[in-house]
């Protein structure tokens, strides 16, 4: 059922058939023009300001958490700095041992023919 504006019924020169089927109002969800017509914009301003404030607080919380994580990582690196030379030596020893695995031969005798001749 179409909704008819009560005001349109006051137009006596227009027949029912000629009247628009649907109200010819703007179907947009948000219309700034409509809002401007409303003289009491204070609630709108308060709501939009609160929304912006909440978004700003949200971003601040996220960035402060990232800084905390970075500080924790830096602190861990500083704590480990005293062990680094010894740990580095242990790591290098482990790598050296892997390079000298007796089951792997890095310098095998080349595949050359020691017995060839031209006869």
């Amino acid at each position: 059922m179409s909704l008819r504006n009560e005001n349109s019924q006051a137009n006596q020169t227009e027949f029912v058939d000629q009247a628009p089927f649907l109200d010819n109002k703007s179907s947009r969800i948000f219309s700034l023009g409509e809002i401007k017509k409303n003289k009491n914009l204070r609630p709108f301003y308060i709501l939009s300001f609160s929304f912006v404030l909440l978004v700003a607080i949200f971003f601040l919380i996220i960035t402060s958490r990232k800084q905390q994580v970075e500080e924790q990582v830096l602190n861990e690196v500083e704590e480990n700095s005293a062990l680094d030379p010894l740990s580095q030596r242990a790591y290098e020893l482990r790598e050296d041992l892997k390079d000298h695995d007796p089951t792997k031969q890095s310098l095998p005798f080349p595949q050359v023919d020691l017995e060839f001749n031209i006869n």
Partner: peptide, 23 residues
Amino acid sequence: LPRTMNPIYVNLSQSISYLSELL
């Protein structure tokens, strides 16, 4: 060579792991 040196290799590997754990 692999059969002869492998026990020494395994022993050294264990020793280096222990050293890392000590740290």
